[in-house]
Amino acid sequence: MAIFLQLLFTGLGIGAIYALVALGFVLLIRAASVVNFAQGQFAMVGAYMLVVCFNVLELPYLVSMALSVVLMGLFGVIFAFVTYWPLRHRGGLPVIISTIGASIFLENIVLVLYGPSPAVLPGLFDSPGFQVGPVFMDSQYLSILVSVALLVALQYFIFEKTLLGKKLQATSQDKEMASLLGIPVAGMILFTFAYSAMLGGLAGMLVAPVLFVSVGMGGLIALKAFAANIIGGYGSIPGAILGGLALGVAETLGAGYISVPYKDAFAFAMLLMFLMVRPQGLFGEKISEKA
């Protein structure tokens, strides 16, 4: 039982990381129908921004984080202009390929600028964690879980309670109609890119103390986050969160009770199972084409 609880806690912590990255994925899918294969690199770039602000410029930790998040927003807009804007009328595949190109570019340009040495960042808290009964609660996993909860609440507030959120929703549901209603669709999409980059960057900053900061760190997470999206229901925000958590728990339990070397296979087997049995995911709508 103690082992089960420990695995469950860790699974949730890992799952929260997937969920955070998946959240950034979902927003872009909804607003711009873009599957962003560079979402993992958003996390990597965010973590390096924090490294530069905190380790190099030696700003206070929270100031560094805030500054990095703002910079990520700017980065998201630039990213949209380069990889999405020129291709926005050409369907999904060209944008997918251009985001793949961007992911290669980002990893290598960071490698050139920062060098290959992995960097270490401290966590938000000095204590590594504490013991609750049989379970050791890693403070960074806890911070990630709390951050995910806060972000979900914030996102709910923005999307459901503000005018900006209404406009964003209108844009994601029907671009033509939205633009007829005078909503600046282009602006909404750029905002979504900025927000998605901020989320991705924040995910990178939060996992940095756990995974260390290296150019390859984003790629580790992004594929699982994408899988989490599908398990949760393609384009569904609660789906992304629950899909991420479910994936994290499933693979940690799978590794704990069945086989460690095949750990990654559990995530993908779970995904395949979902695709075969319930392709719309936990929260998705039925897929059908109108005649």
């Binding site: 860790t10 580790l220 460690v260 070397p261 750990k263």
Partner: peptide
């Protein structure tokens, strides 16, 4: 055994 490039080692 474990596969390279893991995000977490709790099960191990």
């Amino acid at each position: 055994g474990y596969t390279n490039q893991q995000t977490d080692f709790t099960p191990v």
